[in-house]
């Protein structure tokens, strides 16, 4: 009790320092203690995913990545599209890259169904707008969700330019096919989204979608963009990849090869 009171006073005081100064300090509290992922060596990681959409499309209606994510994270299956929960799913390329693909682009490209997920933006608007820091950016670039803190105001959904976030309009428990006990479900009234499998990264595993994709065609590459010698670092530096709506300055970290 006492501790949280002190915390509150401390933060209230910082608030008075003014917007920019306080922003720095308060984010500092959340991020200061180094994550195992960011390593003690002072190396800053920048986790990212690259998706080769042509390879992906060669697998037809493959949903290996989606199924793996849904099972991994106790994602409910809600049939009403207005209330669906989605961390990773497929969208038509024309909707994902409306500026790059016009009516005269190759049909196979326009109509290609490509996986979309949270882009773990370098400069995430969802984090900027959240009034409780229930969503925030970790040192390793992952945009995390703290479902314990979220008040369900949905401002982050309004602020995300990619439709990457889902809100629990109802209790999700009842809509989960196979409940697994080593990952929590969510409760009614909170927002959720892809966390890049932070819980798997913590034990040195790859994100579930990437692992599942590797077992089929290997269209997804996961790694540390800050390391130019990583597979993804080389890929992004040597091939033309695209990111969604780069003009907004959010600096997405999911790269697509069309």
């Amino acid at each position: 009790m006492n501790k949280s009171r002190r915390d509150f006073l401390k933060k209230a005081g910082m608030t008075l320092l003014g917007a920019s100064g306080a922003r720095f300090v308060i984010l500092g509290i959340a991020d200061a203690e180094h994550l195992p992922d960011s390593g003690g060596s002072g190396v800053r990681r920048r986790w990212a995913i690259a998706i080769d959409t042509e390879k992906c499309a060669s697998q037809g209606d493959c949903t290996a990545c989606i199924d793996a994510c849904n099972a991994e994270h106790n994602i409910p299956r809600i049939d009403n599209p207005e209330e669906e929960i989605k961390w990773i799913w497929k969208e038509r390329a024309k909707a994902v890259f409306p500026h790059q693909l016009g009516n005269d682009s190759p049909r196979t490209l326009r109509d290609r169904e490509i996986p979309v997920l949270c882009n773990h933006c370098e400069n995430p608007p969802c984090v900027r707008v959240c009034p409780t820091q229930a969503t925030w950016k970790r040192d390793d670039g992952i945009v995390m969700m703290d479902q314990h803190r979220c008040i369900g105001c949905r401002y982050c959904i309004v602020g995300c330019p990619y439709g990457a976030r889902s809100f629990n309009f109802r209790d999700p428990r009842r809509a989960i096919d196979k409940l697994r006990s080593d990952y929590p479900t969510r409760t009614r009234g909170v927002v959720e989204k892809c966390t890049l499998c932070a819980e798997r990264l913590a034990i040195g595993a790859q994100p579930a979608c990437v692992e599942a994709c590797e077992a089929t065609c290997g269209a997804m590459v996961f790694g540390d963009l800050a390391n130019p010698d990583s597979a993804i670092g080389r890929l992004v530096r040597t091939t033309l990849t695209m990111r969604r709506k780069p003009e907004l300055g959010t600096e997405p970290k999911v790269h697509y090869k069309l």
């Binding site: 949280s4 209230a12 917007a19 308060i26 959240c130 009034p131 369900g152």
Partner: peptide
């Protein structure tokens, strides 16, 4: 969505 937690806005002031 979580009205019981609305004090979080005050507990974690976010300028």
């Amino acid at each position: 969505g979580q009205p019981m937690r609305v004090v979080n806005v005050i507990l974690f002031p976010t300028p």
